[in-house]
Design a protein around this nucleic acid. Structure first.
Length: 515
RNA sequence: GCAGACGUAGCUCAGUUGGUUAGAGCGUCGGAUUGUGGCUCCGAAGGUCGGUGGUUCGAAUCCACUCGUCUGUACCA
């Protein structure tokens, strides 16, 4: 055989996905529900573009040797570097800074958008994904952080996640700073070790107390034999940090009846410092505020083990965690982690303006949350009903016009409908098409029906059910029986179709109610 | 980034110590049936065995490199 011409291979860049109709509809619905909550809290939408000048995006500046490490970057005509945004917070800070004289503070906004990260993709982890953020800029009080937490909890419930199946966990960067200081890592030289400790704490969910102990001490070797260097802390410091991680609430750690003191064995050997004290008082205030709003600790919980966004958060940090088991395609329970998070970032706008502009906000990972909701069965993926198919039996202009008219009549009545656009000469294929497409109803009118002023309406759902019962009927007999089909007057088309669709909807409701 | 496993038709997978023309099931397409989805029967298409190079008389099979997928780990704004 002759050598084939070199065909171009169709392929998707790794870490990117095409989205199906069902996924798009489901995501749109989720976004709609979240948006409703944000709007109710008085937030307004704002949109910024996918590209920003790289230096505006923040600390992950590409060096000229590796401009695409972590972010996707390109060089503009004038040789300036631009990057695809990797979150929605940095672009917001840029927008606020650029328009700071026009913007009325406190500025309350939300936005959903795609963000891009140029890093190794994994299951459920993509290089393009959607976030839905809300931020309040220009509000210094922890009252704002408390509101953010409540809004996040409301968003979870609006998405159909029942109370008790999620929790918003809140901590304060100042508390962690205070702990670092207490165990002797407060100095400038210890910045690197502080990071190591915080990273180790963040791994508590994944590795448990023993794993974290190793990471805080000598280091940890994983299953593949890869070694992660540890923080080389003293045993006493390690014990203290484990106590923090194991505490389920801040009350377990702190006695604040008189003066602030640590309660637990290892921690109590350390002195409480100013940073810890300030952080703790903020958390206490948040806790009181959300309780006044009706949010008890089953929804918003103060949790000193929350570590996130090591770099730019300056005060309260919070994250939304799902409490139900999430299973993957193979049915295995996976470590899901948080589906959203945020915190106070008082320094981000100051980079541009030199002015102190406090801000706090959070981000919901829409793509991630969607796969979890699929699991919970809270995602209506089958919502869209396929169109009614008007089949074609004659190809002359007059006949086509008649079919087109039927189709338009259905559409005018608000019924999703389409006329068969393939090769009409193979009628069997038309019904096969309708079947594959899950069309609920087919409209059939050949010359016989037309002469009588009639047409046939075929209930494809009932037909499929009959077919699955009658397995040994031969094809000729089966076809001649014209299952699940009725003959009506042409004029009754719209009304009959509507009645039948309503019946089918009723059947679906009954069926899903029973099962 | 580091470490390991894997890569054969659209999908799921066979393929013997290295031996002729690489197979099956499912799916797809056509026909039986130019006006009826399913079942049945008949037929067809579909493969650079991930890629490149090497060892060999001979490679899907062995070796090296490379690309991709998966798992763990690191990083994660």
């Amino acid at each position: 055989m002759a050598k084939k011409p070199n065909k171009l291979k169709a392929r998707l860049p790794r870490g990117f996905v095409d989205r199906s109709a069902a996924e798009i509809r489901a995501a749109d619905e989720m976004i709609g529900k979240i948006r409703e909550v944000y709007e109710r809290y008085g937030f307004d939408p704002i949109e910024t573009p996918a590209f920003e000048y790289t230096d505006c995006l923040g600390k992950f500046l590409p060096d000229t040797d590796r401009p695409n490490a972590g972010v996707f970057s390109v060089q503009d005509d004038d040789e300036q570097w631009m990057s695809l945004r990797y979150d929605l917070t940095a672009p917001l800070a840029r927008h606020v800074s650029e328009n700071i004289n026009e913007i009325q503070m406190p500025y309350r906004t939300y936005r959903a958008g795609w963000v891009f990260r140029n890093e190794k993709p994994g299951p459920g982890r993509f290089r393009q994904f959607m976030q839905f953020d809300a931020d309040t800029v220009g509000a210094p009080s922890v009252q704002t952080d408390a509101e953010m937490c409540m809004m996040m909890a409301d968003a979870m419930e609006a998405l159909g996640i029942p109370r008790g199946q999620y929790v918003i966990r809140v901590n304060n960067r100042k508390v962690l700073d205070g702990v670092m200081e207490a165990i002797g890592l407060g100095g400038e030289d210890d910045a690197e070790r502080r990071l190591t400790v915080l990273r180790a704490m963040d791994k508590y969910d994944k590795f448990g107390a023993e794993g974290v102990r190793l990471l805080l001490g000598a280091g940890r070797k994983d299953e593949s034999g890869d070694f992660t260097a540890g923080a080389s802390l003293s045993d006493m410091a390690i014990d203290a940090i484990i106590e923090i991680l194991e505490a389920s609430a801040i009350d377990d750690l702190i006695d604040y009846t008189n003066d602030l003191t640590f309660k637990t064995a290892a921690l109590s050997k350390f002195a409480i410092n100013e940073s810890f004290d300030a952080g703790f008082r903020e958390l206490k205030l948040i806790s009181d505020l959300v309780k006044s709003g009706g949010y008890m600790s089953d929804r918003i919980s103060i949790d000193p083990s929350v570590v996130r966004g090591l770099e730019y958060y300056t005060g309260p940090v919070y994250e939304a965690e799902l409490l139900f088991d999430v299973k993957n395609e193979k049915g295995e329970v996976v470590q899901f982690g948080s589906v959203g998070g945020g915190g106070r970032y008082d320094g981000l706008v100051k980079r541009f303006t030199g002015r102190d502009v406090p801000a706090t906000g959070f981000s919901i990972g829409v793509s991630r949350l969607m796969s979890a909701l699929k699991n919970l069965g809270k995602l209506d993926v089958e919502d869209a009903i396929a169109p009614v198919l008007v089949t074609v039996m004659d190809g002359d202009a007059e006949a086509l016009g008649r079919y087109q008219k039927m189709t338009q009549d259905l559409r005018a009545a608000g019924i999703r409908a389409e006329m068969y656009q393939g090769n009409w000469k193979k009628f069997g294929n038309q019904l096969k098409y309708a079947d594959r497409r899950d069309c609920p109803i087919a409209i059939i009118q050949g010359s016989d029906e037309r002469d009588a002023g009639e047409l046939q309406i075929k209930d494809l759902i009932e037909g499929a059910r009959l077919a699955s019962e009658a397995t040994d009927v031969d094809n000729i007999t089966w076809r001649e029986s014209r299952p699940a089909q009725i003959t009506i007057k042409t004029d009754d088309l719209v009304q009959t179709v509507r009645t039948l669709l309503d019946q089918q909807a009723e059947d679906r409701r009954r069926l899903s109610g029973e099962v």
